[in-house]
Write a protein that binds this DNA or RNA. Sequence first.
DNA 1: TTACATCGTTAGTGCCACTAACGCAACAGG
DNA 2: CCTGTTGCGTTAGTGGCACTAACGATGTAA
Lengths: 154, 154
Amino acid sequence: MGVTYEMDEQATPELLRTLPSRMLSQVAMYADRLAGERLGAADARKWHYAALVALRASGPASQAELSRRTGVYRSDMVAVVNELEERGHVERAPDPADRRRNVITMTDSGRRHLERLDELIAGLQDDLLAPLTGPEREQFSALLARLLAHHSRA
Amino acid sequence: MGVTYEMDEQATPELLRTLPSRMLSQVAMYADRLAGERLGAADARKWHYAALVALRASGPASQAELSRRTGVYRSDMVAVVNELEERGHVERAPDPADRRRNVITMTDSGRRHLERLDELIAGLQDDLLAPLTGPEREQFSALLARLLAHHSRA
DNA sequence: TTACATCGTTAGTGCCACTAACGCAACAGG
DNA sequence: CCTGTTGCGTTAGTGGCACTAACGATGTAA
Protein backbone atom coordinates (compact mmCIF):
# COMPACT_ATOMS: atom_id res chain seq x y z
CA MET A 1 0.00 0.00 0.00
CA GLY A 2 0.96 3.65 -0.12
CA VAL A 3 2.92 5.28 -2.86
CA THR A 4 5.74 3.56 -4.62
CA TYR A 5 6.72 6.81 -6.20
CA GLU A 6 9.89 8.55 -5.12
CA MET A 7 9.47 12.23 -4.53
CA ASP A 8 12.25 14.31 -3.11
CA GLU A 9 10.65 16.41 -0.39
CA GLN A 10 13.92 18.14 0.35
CA ALA A 11 14.33 19.38 -3.19
CA THR A 12 10.81 20.77 -3.39
CA PRO A 13 10.94 24.55 -3.44
CA GLU A 14 9.97 26.24 -0.19
CA LEU A 15 7.27 28.25 -1.94
CA LEU A 16 5.59 25.06 -3.10
CA ARG A 17 6.09 23.12 0.10
CA THR A 18 4.44 25.74 2.28
CA LEU A 19 1.59 26.70 -0.01
CA PRO A 20 -1.63 26.09 1.95
CA SER A 21 -3.68 25.02 -1.05
CA ARG A 22 -1.00 22.54 -2.00
CA MET A 23 -0.58 21.10 1.48
CA LEU A 24 -4.33 20.81 1.69
CA SER A 25 -4.55 18.87 -1.56
CA GLN A 26 -1.76 16.57 -0.55
CA VAL A 27 -3.10 15.75 2.86
CA ALA A 28 -6.54 15.20 1.36
CA MET A 29 -5.01 12.95 -1.26
CA TYR A 30 -3.35 10.90 1.40
CA ALA A 31 -6.61 10.68 3.34
CA ASP A 32 -8.53 9.64 0.25
CA ARG A 33 -5.99 7.00 -0.64
CA LEU A 34 -6.03 5.58 2.85
CA ALA A 35 -9.81 5.57 2.87
CA GLY A 36 -9.91 3.93 -0.54
CA GLU A 37 -7.51 1.20 0.48
CA ARG A 38 -9.23 0.33 3.71
CA LEU A 39 -12.75 0.55 2.39
CA GLY A 40 -11.65 -1.47 -0.60
CA ALA A 41 -10.37 -4.19 1.71
CA ALA A 42 -13.85 -4.22 3.25
CA ASP A 43 -15.45 -4.44 -0.21
CA ALA A 44 -16.77 -0.90 -0.02
CA ARG A 45 -16.20 2.61 -1.27
CA LYS A 46 -16.57 6.06 0.27
CA TRP A 47 -19.98 6.48 -1.26
CA HIS A 48 -21.26 3.19 0.09
CA TYR A 49 -20.52 4.44 3.56
CA ALA A 50 -22.15 7.81 2.93
CA ALA A 51 -25.30 6.22 1.58
CA LEU A 52 -25.58 3.71 4.40
CA VAL A 53 -25.05 6.39 7.04
CA ALA A 54 -27.79 8.47 5.44
CA LEU A 55 -30.13 5.49 5.43
CA ARG A 56 -29.48 4.80 9.08
CA ALA A 57 -29.94 8.43 10.04
CA SER A 58 -33.23 9.08 8.31
CA GLY A 59 -34.63 5.74 7.24
CA PRO A 60 -35.63 4.54 3.76
CA ALA A 61 -35.30 7.11 1.02
CA SER A 62 -35.38 7.57 -2.72
CA GLN A 63 -32.14 7.66 -4.64
CA ALA A 64 -32.51 11.36 -5.28
CA GLU A 65 -32.97 11.95 -1.57
CA LEU A 66 -29.85 9.95 -0.78
CA SER A 67 -28.07 11.96 -3.39
CA ARG A 68 -29.00 15.23 -1.72
CA ARG A 69 -28.08 13.97 1.71
CA THR A 70 -24.70 12.62 0.75
CA GLY A 71 -23.59 14.97 -1.99
CA VAL A 72 -23.17 12.07 -4.38
CA TYR A 73 -24.52 12.89 -7.80
CA ARG A 74 -27.86 11.40 -8.74
CA SER A 75 -26.21 9.82 -11.77
CA ASP A 76 -23.48 8.20 -9.67
CA MET A 77 -25.92 7.10 -7.00
CA VAL A 78 -27.29 4.56 -9.47
CA ALA A 79 -24.06 2.57 -9.34
CA VAL A 80 -23.77 2.94 -5.57
CA VAL A 81 -27.24 1.50 -5.03
CA ASN A 82 -26.52 -1.22 -7.60
CA GLU A 83 -23.41 -2.26 -5.72
CA LEU A 84 -25.05 -2.14 -2.32
CA GLU A 85 -27.96 -4.14 -3.68
CA GLU A 86 -25.66 -6.78 -5.22
CA ARG A 87 -24.01 -7.22 -1.83
CA GLY A 88 -27.39 -7.50 -0.13
CA HIS A 89 -26.94 -4.38 1.98
CA VAL A 90 -29.96 -2.53 0.65
CA GLU A 91 -33.18 -3.35 -1.18
CA ARG A 92 -34.54 -1.36 -4.09
CA ALA A 93 -38.29 -1.29 -4.58
CA PRO A 94 -40.57 0.93 -6.62
CA ASP A 95 -42.47 3.50 -4.56
CA PRO A 96 -46.20 2.79 -4.88
CA ALA A 97 -47.00 6.37 -3.89
CA ASP A 98 -44.81 7.90 -6.58
CA ARG A 99 -43.94 5.64 -9.45
CA ARG A 100 -40.95 7.71 -10.47
CA ARG A 101 -39.17 6.85 -7.26
CA ASN A 102 -37.35 3.85 -5.90
CA VAL A 103 -37.46 3.28 -2.18
CA ILE A 104 -34.08 2.19 -0.85
CA THR A 105 -34.15 0.26 2.40
CA MET A 106 -31.20 -0.97 4.45
CA THR A 107 -31.14 -4.68 5.22
CA ASP A 108 -29.81 -6.38 8.35
CA SER A 109 -26.72 -7.29 6.39
CA GLY A 110 -26.38 -3.61 5.56
CA ARG A 111 -26.64 -2.63 9.20
CA ARG A 112 -23.93 -5.10 10.19
CA HIS A 113 -21.77 -3.97 7.30
CA LEU A 114 -22.23 -0.36 8.32
CA GLU A 115 -21.11 -1.12 11.86
CA ARG A 116 -17.89 -2.56 10.53
CA LEU A 117 -17.41 0.48 8.35
CA ASP A 118 -18.07 2.77 11.32
CA GLU A 119 -15.13 1.27 13.13
CA LEU A 120 -12.98 1.34 10.05
CA ILE A 121 -13.75 5.00 9.45
CA ALA A 122 -13.16 5.91 13.07
CA GLY A 123 -9.78 4.21 12.94
CA LEU A 124 -9.07 6.13 9.79
CA GLN A 125 -9.68 9.49 11.46
CA ASP A 126 -7.33 8.42 14.17
CA ASP A 127 -4.56 7.50 11.79
CA LEU A 128 -5.12 10.58 9.70
CA LEU A 129 -4.81 12.89 12.70
CA ALA A 130 -2.21 10.75 14.44
CA PRO A 131 0.47 13.44 14.78
CA LEU A 132 -1.94 15.87 16.46
CA THR A 133 -2.92 16.06 20.11
CA GLY A 134 -6.56 15.93 21.17
CA PRO A 135 -7.02 19.70 21.33
CA GLU A 136 -5.18 20.14 18.07
CA ARG A 137 -7.53 17.73 16.38
CA GLU A 138 -10.46 19.78 17.64
CA GLN A 139 -8.79 22.92 16.36
CA PHE A 140 -8.16 21.39 12.98
CA SER A 141 -11.70 20.09 12.65
CA ALA A 142 -13.15 23.41 13.68
CA LEU A 143 -11.06 25.29 11.13
CA LEU A 144 -12.04 22.84 8.41
CA ALA A 145 -15.69 23.21 9.35
CA ARG A 146 -15.46 26.96 9.03
CA LEU A 147 -13.73 26.78 5.68
CA LEU A 148 -16.33 24.32 4.48
CA ALA A 149 -19.21 26.46 5.70
CA HIS A 150 -17.76 29.47 3.98
CA HIS A 151 -17.15 27.81 0.66
CA SER A 152 -20.32 25.76 0.43
CA ARG A 153 -22.81 28.52 0.97
CA ALA A 154 -24.71 29.45 -2.18
CA MET B 1 -18.18 28.92 -11.81
CA GLY B 2 -18.71 26.78 -8.75
CA VAL B 3 -21.12 23.93 -8.45
CA THR B 4 -24.52 23.95 -10.04
CA TYR B 5 -25.47 20.90 -8.08
CA GLU B 6 -27.98 21.19 -5.27
CA MET B 7 -26.91 19.43 -2.15
CA ASP B 8 -28.91 19.72 1.01
CA GLU B 9 -26.35 20.51 3.68
CA GLN B 10 -29.01 20.49 6.36
CA ALA B 11 -30.13 16.96 5.57
CA THR B 12 -26.60 15.56 5.64
CA PRO B 13 -26.18 13.33 8.68
CA GLU B 14 -24.17 14.84 11.50
CA LEU B 15 -21.74 11.94 11.44
CA LEU B 16 -20.92 12.63 7.82
CA ARG B 17 -20.86 16.40 8.12
CA THR B 18 -18.36 16.41 10.95
CA LEU B 19 -16.05 13.65 9.73
CA PRO B 20 -12.56 15.18 9.46
CA SER B 21 -11.53 13.11 6.45
CA ARG B 22 -14.68 14.14 4.64
CA MET B 23 -14.38 17.83 5.49
CA LEU B 24 -10.79 17.67 4.39
CA SER B 25 -11.67 16.17 1.03
CA GLN B 26 -14.41 18.67 0.45
CA VAL B 27 -12.35 21.71 1.29
CA ALA B 28 -9.52 20.38 -0.86
CA MET B 29 -11.96 19.81 -3.68
CA TYR B 30 -13.13 23.35 -3.46
CA ALA B 31 -9.56 24.61 -3.42
CA ASP B 32 -8.65 22.47 -6.44
CA ARG B 33 -11.65 23.65 -8.36
CA LEU B 34 -10.89 27.27 -7.62
CA ALA B 35 -7.26 26.77 -8.62
CA GLY B 36 -8.28 24.98 -11.80
CA GLU B 37 -10.66 27.72 -12.82
CA ARG B 38 -8.27 30.57 -12.22
CA LEU B 39 -5.22 28.88 -13.66
CA GLY B 40 -7.33 27.81 -16.61
CA ALA B 41 -8.28 31.43 -17.21
CA ALA B 42 -4.55 32.18 -17.29
CA ASP B 43 -3.96 29.32 -19.75
CA ALA B 44 -2.18 27.22 -17.15
CA ARG B 45 -2.61 24.26 -14.84
CA LYS B 46 -1.42 23.47 -11.33
CA TRP B 47 1.48 21.50 -12.69
CA HIS B 48 2.66 24.28 -14.92
CA TYR B 49 3.02 26.44 -11.87
CA ALA B 50 4.84 23.75 -9.92
CA ALA B 51 7.29 23.12 -12.74
CA LEU B 52 7.99 26.80 -13.31
CA VAL B 53 8.54 27.43 -9.61
CA ALA B 54 10.97 24.53 -9.49
CA LEU B 55 12.84 25.89 -12.49
CA ARG B 56 13.10 29.33 -10.93
CA ALA B 57 14.25 27.93 -7.62
CA SER B 58 17.00 25.66 -8.87
CA GLY B 59 17.64 26.52 -12.48
CA PRO B 60 17.53 24.29 -15.55
CA ALA B 61 16.79 20.65 -14.85
CA SER B 62 15.93 17.38 -16.50
CA GLN B 63 12.32 16.27 -16.63
CA ALA B 64 12.96 13.56 -14.07
CA GLU B 65 14.46 16.12 -11.73
CA LEU B 66 11.45 18.38 -12.14
CA SER B 67 9.30 15.38 -11.46
CA ARG B 68 11.03 14.70 -8.16
CA ARG B 69 10.93 18.33 -7.13
CA THR B 70 7.26 18.83 -7.86
CA GLY B 71 5.78 15.42 -7.13
CA VAL B 72 4.37 15.25 -10.65
CA TYR B 73 4.82 11.81 -12.18
CA ARG B 74 7.57 11.45 -14.72
CA SER B 75 5.01 10.18 -17.22
CA ASP B 76 2.78 13.18 -16.70
CA MET B 77 5.67 15.62 -16.76
CA VAL B 78 6.01 14.91 -20.47
CA ALA B 79 2.72 16.65 -21.19
CA VAL B 80 3.50 19.49 -18.81
CA VAL B 81 6.78 20.25 -20.57
CA ASN B 82 5.08 19.87 -23.94
CA GLU B 83 2.48 22.44 -22.98
CA LEU B 84 4.96 24.86 -21.49
CA GLU B 85 7.12 24.51 -24.58
CA GLU B 86 4.19 25.14 -26.93
CA ARG B 87 3.48 28.35 -25.06
CA GLY B 88 7.11 29.37 -25.22
CA HIS B 89 7.63 29.32 -21.46
CA VAL B 90 10.40 26.73 -21.47
CA GLU B 91 12.89 25.26 -23.90
CA ARG B 92 13.67 21.56 -24.19
CA ALA B 93 17.11 20.55 -25.35
CA PRO B 94 19.04 17.30 -25.23
CA ASP B 95 21.70 17.20 -22.52
CA PRO B 96 25.11 16.82 -24.19
CA ALA B 97 26.58 15.47 -20.98
CA ASP B 98 23.99 12.72 -20.62
CA ARG B 99 22.14 11.84 -23.75
CA ARG B 100 19.25 10.25 -21.88
CA ARG B 101 18.28 13.59 -20.42
CA ASN B 102 16.49 16.68 -21.67
CA VAL B 103 17.51 19.99 -20.20
CA ILE B 104 14.52 22.19 -19.50
CA THR B 105 15.22 25.90 -19.35
CA MET B 106 12.81 28.69 -18.50
CA THR B 107 12.47 31.49 -21.05
CA ASP B 108 11.82 35.16 -20.40
CA SER B 109 8.24 34.58 -21.40
CA GLY B 110 8.16 31.82 -18.80
CA ARG B 111 9.48 34.14 -16.13
CA ARG B 112 6.87 36.76 -16.89
CA HIS B 113 4.16 34.11 -16.97
CA LEU B 114 5.32 32.77 -13.62
CA GLU B 115 5.11 36.21 -12.05
CA ARG B 116 1.48 36.46 -13.10
CA LEU B 117 0.82 33.02 -11.70
CA ASP B 118 2.53 33.96 -8.43
CA GLU B 119 0.01 36.73 -7.91
CA LEU B 120 -2.86 34.53 -8.96
CA ILE B 121 -1.82 31.81 -6.54
CA ALA B 122 -1.32 34.26 -3.71
CA GLY B 123 -4.81 35.62 -4.28
CA LEU B 124 -6.07 32.08 -4.24
CA GLN B 125 -4.62 31.39 -0.80
CA ASP B 126 -6.30 34.49 0.40
CA ASP B 127 -9.69 33.49 -0.91
CA LEU B 128 -9.29 29.95 0.30
CA LEU B 129 -8.51 31.05 3.85
CA ALA B 130 -10.83 34.05 3.73
CA PRO B 131 -12.95 33.12 6.75
CA LEU B 132 -9.89 32.71 8.99
CA THR B 133 -8.01 35.39 10.87
CA GLY B 134 -4.27 35.84 10.41
CA PRO B 135 -3.27 33.72 13.41
CA GLU B 136 -5.83 31.08 12.47
CA ARG B 137 -4.32 30.83 9.03
CA GLU B 138 -0.92 30.26 10.61
CA GLN B 139 -2.44 27.61 12.86
CA PHE B 140 -4.12 25.88 9.98
CA SER B 141 -0.99 25.89 7.83
CA ALA B 142 1.11 24.59 10.69
CA LEU B 143 -1.29 21.73 11.35
CA LEU B 144 -1.39 20.85 7.66
CA ALA B 145 2.39 20.90 7.54
CA ARG B 146 2.60 18.48 10.44
CA LEU B 147 0.05 16.12 8.91
CA LEU B 148 1.90 16.26 5.63
CA ALA B 149 5.25 15.60 7.24
CA HIS B 150 3.84 12.65 9.11
CA HIS B 151 2.19 11.03 6.14
CA SER B 152 4.88 11.63 3.57
CA ARG B 153 7.79 10.13 5.44
CA ALA B 154 8.91 6.84 3.97
C1' DT C 1 -54.48 20.76 -21.34
C1' DT C 2 -50.33 22.74 -21.18
C1' DA C 3 -46.25 23.58 -19.05
C1' DC C 4 -42.95 22.45 -15.95
C1' DA C 5 -40.36 19.80 -12.44
C1' DT C 6 -38.64 15.46 -10.64
C1' DC C 7 -36.97 10.69 -10.88
C1' DG C 8 -33.97 6.97 -12.39
C1' DT C 9 -30.84 5.98 -15.84
C1' DT C 10 -27.32 6.07 -19.58
C1' DA C 11 -23.56 8.07 -21.68
C1' DG C 12 -19.82 10.75 -21.85
C1' DT C 13 -16.14 14.50 -20.47
C1' DG C 14 -12.00 15.85 -18.18
C1' DC C 15 -8.72 15.74 -14.59
C1' DC C 16 -5.70 13.41 -11.83
C1' DA C 17 -3.02 9.62 -9.44
C1' DC C 18 -0.84 5.75 -10.66
C1' DT C 19 1.23 1.45 -13.22
C1' DA C 20 3.58 -1.00 -16.85
C1' DA C 21 6.48 -1.39 -20.36
C1' DC C 22 9.39 0.33 -24.27
C1' DG C 23 14.09 1.47 -26.24
C1' DC C 24 17.93 4.00 -25.16
C1' DA C 25 21.87 5.48 -22.52
C1' DA C 26 25.01 5.41 -18.54
C1' DC C 27 27.40 2.94 -15.20
C1' DA C 28 29.40 -0.55 -11.99
C1' DG C 29 31.49 -5.08 -11.21
C1' DG C 30 33.74 -9.12 -12.62
C1' DC D 1 34.94 -6.13 -22.69
C1' DC D 2 30.68 -7.93 -21.66
C1' DT D 3 26.74 -7.84 -18.32
C1' DG D 4 23.31 -6.72 -15.26
C1' DT D 5 21.33 -2.73 -13.20
C1' DT D 6 19.67 1.72 -12.99
C1' DG D 7 17.88 6.06 -14.87
C1' DC D 8 15.82 8.55 -18.73
C1' DG D 9 11.87 10.13 -21.76
C1' DT D 10 7.82 8.45 -23.68
C1' DT D 11 3.46 5.95 -24.72
C1' DA D 12 -0.49 3.73 -23.30
C1' DG D 13 -3.75 2.51 -20.27
C1' DT D 14 -6.50 2.00 -15.65
C1' DG D 15 -9.66 3.56 -12.25
C1' DG D 16 -11.91 6.92 -9.43
C1' DC D 17 -14.25 11.01 -9.01
C1' DA D 18 -16.69 15.43 -10.14
C1' DC D 19 -19.61 16.95 -13.29
C1' DT D 20 -22.96 17.69 -17.54
C1' DA D 21 -26.48 16.47 -20.79
C1' DA D 22 -30.15 14.23 -22.25
C1' DC D 23 -33.80 10.46 -22.23
C1' DG D 24 -38.46 8.72 -21.19
C1' DA D 25 -41.70 8.20 -17.57
C1' DT D 26 -44.18 10.31 -14.10
C1' DG D 27 -45.97 13.76 -11.01
C1' DT D 28 -47.66 18.74 -10.05
C1' DA D 29 -49.49 23.28 -11.04
C1' DA D 30 -51.28 27.05 -14.03
